[in-house]
Design a protein around this nucleic acid. Structure first.
Lengths: 233, 233
DNA sequence: CGATTATTGTCGCATTATGAGACATTAAAG
DNA sequence: CTTTAATGTCTCATAATGCGACAATAATCG
């Protein structure tokens, strides 16, 4: 077993989370940067000995972003034998003066369960943990180099997001409570990475019967004002 | 770490596989029954310390069915804290005179990665392992009670199968090299659990351009003989 | 104050996909 | 030769989708 600050964790098992947000017409994810290193990683963590796996992920997400009751979806478990943090983590531990033997277990091989979450960009209060000094949003199309196989994890998360977009993913988490049709279309376009026909998109969305129309929004532009919509609960 | 016959395994980590076959117009899965118990379980196993997770599953499947190069898809990782085999496994170990302490680790909490496979019913040579005396096909709609949460795992496998049927799953593994349109339709109907319109199904399949038409099959029936088809490679 | 501009809501049309029934074909049995 | 049952294909109605067009409208500009 591994111990971290007096808590016992399952050895060889971790989770990583790909946390999506939407801002400035682009899809973002949360990344951590470790103190005094140029190493970026997905926010992840370990599973306590008597803790549900899903609970562990919720807990970690709450600790890092301050938000709770998030839509979390498990999408793949990465289990290659050579998945370990030797090298990178040595650098991190040294930079943080944590080089004692009690943390050696962190250098073991880890099987990692990957989750994705869709959250509202504005609701987040990214908080660094003890060994990372920033937890910041990055444009998903312009990520820094990530440690280990974290780039692969992000890729797989994106593919999952795309394939499940029409089925069950609660896209509304990404937007404000109320939004325009153009904003909603932009979310779809960014996730699918393709442009959609405006008329068809609007017709399709309205035909689904999942949107409620509200007051028009006078946005100050020299044009017709759009309606605001929200998702029916 | 856990030891089994001199090999070292990752503790707290297991896999379970839902192996689908098709025979007699029905979808089947492989189940193991333990010696001298009435306990049925999905074929599963453990991951060696220096072994890729995917490798472990392939290895286990080859050991139990004799077939290799199977399409294996990971679909979920079950990680509830109370997932353990206390009770059931005690019964199994006692029935097999394996009640010594060296196997105590098997009673721990296990996080299990679940895989599904589609294989050709006829190619399989189910082989029991040391502690299970049968590894047999069961109709998926008529399963015996399964240990632990294995029924839940089967359910989730079925849902995954259904949702991915049109996208990427290599259904052809379930059939012979050549097959009739009626047989193919039956596979779809069994997986989707609904009947399909014959004309529409045939039109759809032919329009996909993934089938090659062969000689007619004179099946001895008092009716027009169907063509045989195979999937284009 | 009227013309202009950019964006929006909606419609029409062509094309494609889908559901359902119908009809001729055909291999074997009587 | 007739009958039977399954098959290949067709037609029609309906639904879904891609794409362009048009009127409406809020702000700006002359």
């Amino acid at each position: 077993m591994g111990f971290l600050k007096g808590v016992e964790y399952l050895d060889h098992l971790a989770y990583d989370s790909v946390i999506f947000g939407f801002a400035g017409d682009n899809l973002k994810i949360l990344l951590m940067e470790y103190h005094d290193t140029a190493l970026f990683a997905l926010p992840g963590g370990f599973v306590q000995v008597d803790e549900d796996l899903n609970e562990a992920v919720s807990r970690g997400l709450a600790e890092r972003t301050g938000i709770q009751n998030v839509y979390l979806e498990q999408f793949y478990t990465f289990g290659d034998a050579k998945r370990n943090l030797t090298g990178e983590m040595n650098k991190i531990l040294n930079a943080n003066n944590l080089g004692d033997d009690s943390l050696k277990w962190i250098l073991n091989r880890f099987v990692s369960v990957a989750y994705l979450a869709l959250i509202n960009y504005k609701n987040v209060n990214p908080r660094p943990d003890e060994i990372s000094d920033s937890c910041t949003w990055y444009d998903v199309n312009n990520l820094p180099p990530l440690i280990q196989d974290h780039s692969t994890i992000v890729e797989k998360a994106l593919i999952t997001l795309q394939s499940q977009l029409d089925h069950k993913l609660p896209i509304y988490e990404l937007l404000e409570e109320q939004f325009t049709m153009a904003e909603l279309q932009r979310v779809y376009e960014v996730i699918l990475n393709e442009s959609l026909h405006r008329g068809s998109f609007q017709r399709k969305m309205l035909s689904l019967g999942i949107l409620k129309r509200h007051e028009k929004q006078f946005n100050g532009g020299a044009n017709k004002a759009p309606y605001l919509y929200s998702f029916l609960k």
